[in-house]
Design a protein around this nucleic acid. Structure first.
Lengths: 347, 347
DNA sequence: AAAGCTACAGTAAACCTTTACCCAAAATGT
DNA sequence: ACATTTTGGGTAAAGGTTTACTGTAGCTTT
């Protein structure tokens, strides 16, 4: 069943049916009504491929993420799906698993399907691969950093604000020895988080100690290894901030295994505030980066390009969410123990 | 740039180019080589919508899940994506959030995009909505239960095997008082899990006690509430099995809050074996249902339909994965205590 | 009342590919 | 050497929609 069937039933031409469907205002309301009735009666759906073919608009948006099993991303996908569907778009999802070769294939898939825009939310991009997308004039949106070319936007995450809140929170509680479990070096976002951390330390007048900055890889296992490393040092820090929540969960895990209590012995802060953070034991204090904002920003940036708007920078905020994994440093203020949830606010 | 450009450069007709791309064996290898070179030189990609339009095959597969933020689903999506892409398909994802109205829209989206098949992995379906898909003759695959119509397959999960292993595991440790936190009544899969549990109890000669079966809703919060309820009963069970891992995590959480240790005071078993299960404190013993199997089964069932094979039932296995949340019942074998690190115990 | 608009429906071309059909040349058979 | 089959490339139609262009009422203007 096609547009001709509808036209026949409504006693109009196919052009009128098409115009009605596309809400073109020059259609006489009477005819439009007839057309809609026919559509409804026949249970007609326009053929998307034909529409896309002739109009050149696929109404498809690509979304490339690092790994779908890191809970940060599904929450992002959810937001992206909602926003995209609301705007009449469908989304194509690709996950790279940090493999350049997979990234390559993802890009190819997006191009083949004629995605009208692609959001690359992998927090780290391989330059050469992008050229393929750029060549095709597909609007792109990145996180943190993007090539300065036309058609490319960037979602600038304000890591510093949230991280400073975290450091201030710890400093207010009395911590002076704060470790940082960093993310992979190749990830731009991880570098930014680390930089924001050292800057925040300085702002709070806490000296940066090299030994308290350990490498991680944004996985639970990495967090466990990092915690192990920190514990083996002469002077164990009283608080640990992590480059993402997965690391923080690993840290929590390893501390618990070693018989250390959180937050009584060590305070822990994560980053991202994934849903899982709230359901850890103890619930994890974390720095929130809104997936909804990210999704909204990405879609609107892409749509902006499609409508010919110039490249835009979208700002994404971060903020501290205090839960139960942070408290006073060990050996101090013991009489206040147990009240830590209400002690020390972000500001 | 289109197929004509390639044809021109390779000095052949567009038909030859098309045949080459589609690997039709009747094209002369010499010409094929010329064509491939031209394709490569021009960096040509076939237009998917045009192909889909004329061939009637969109090479799109739909995947409808309940909620993308429940970690079970992303793992499923990952598997689905891998298998689909491997077979030259792209996937369209829709999440229903358990809202019939969203389900409706998902179905519509799939139909509009001409999905060649749809996997409905929501573990509970609304009959009337399906008719839309059935009417369109779109092959469908479901989990657990499906209407007995042509073009519909079902992935039968063998809940009983894994759950029996779980019950046997607990029984072998000496548990006789085993509670079950069930899932939502409307979910067929939840009902099957409960039924498998009571059957397994009987097989182990343990009487089924009504009071030890409490309702949950497959969320962490539901698990917390259920644990609360169980703890308030006169006789607290020594082990708790849960209809899914989210519930189990909630139970773990609530037990910990109440100062009960797992597994020293209570043993806990989850279901699904999501990735998060292994990183809980303590690591959660769970019953695994392979997402990879599910994904593979779904895609192959769908492909089967497309190739005209009759409706098929695909069996999905479940099996127990023992971690550290299960141990001897409290008050027994005390001499063996201490073999497991008890998380967060502050004597 | 004639001329010129306006408003809006219809016709047909275009989008890019696949594929049925045709046809030429090469290969085979006699 | 001629007839017949095989091989494989070319031509053109088809697929369902959008949209530029055409055409025709019914108005407005003078």
């Amino acid at each position: 069943m096609d547009i001709h069937a509808v036209a026949k039933l409504a006693h109009v031409s196919i052009a009128t049916v098409s115009r009605t469907i596309n809400h073109i205002p020059t259609v006489n309301p009477k005819m439009a009504k007839r057309v809609w009735e026919a559509i409804r009666e026949l249970n007609y759906f326009p053929n998307t491929q034909a529409r896309a073919l002739v109009s050149g608009r696929s109404r498809l948006l690509g979304l490339i993420v690092s790994e779908i099993t890191n809970p940060f991303f599904p929450e992002l996908i959810q937001g992206f799906e909602d926003v995209a569907v609301e705007n009449g778009y469908e989304i194509l999802i690709g996950s790279t698993n940090y493999e350049p070769e997979r990234m390559q294939r993802c890009i190819r898939r997006m191009v083949e399907r004629n995605a009208e825009g692609v959001a690359v939310m992998t927090f780290g991009i391989e330059q050469p691969l992008l050229d393929q997308l750029a060549d095709r004039k597909v609007p792109l949106v990145f996180v943190d950093v993007a090539p300065n070319k036309p058609g490319m936007s960037v979602l600038k995450v304000d890591y510093h604000h949230g991280i400073r809140q975290g450091v201030q929170h710890l400093a207010a509680l009395g911590h002076r020895s704060i470790a940082f479990v960093a993310g992979p070096e190749r990830l731009h976002s991880a570098q930014s988080r680390l930089a924001a951390f050292t800057k925040a330390l300085e702002e709070c007048g806490i000296p940066v100690e090299e030994k308290l900055i350990v490498a991680g890889d944004h996985t639970v296992e990495g967090g466990m290894a990092a915690a192990e490393k920190l514990m083996s040092q002469k002077e164990m820090p009283t608080a640990i901030m992590c480059s993402n929540d997965m690391l923080a969960i690993g840290v929590l895990h390893q501390l618990s295994r070693s018989g250390l209590r959180v937050p009584d012995d060590v305070s822990v802060i994560g980053f991202d505030d994934i849903h899982m953070a709230a359901i850890m034991i103890p619930p994890l204090t974390s720095i929130q980066m809104s997936r909804a904002d990210l999704a909204l920003g990405a879609v609107s940036a892409l749509r902006g390009h499609l409508e010919g708007l110039p490249k835009r920078e979208h700002k994404i905020d971060t903020r501290l969410v205090v839960r139960e994994s942070t408290g006073f440093p060990r050996g101090t203020m013991a009489h206040l123990r147990g009240r830590k949830a209400s002690a020390g606010s972000a500001e």
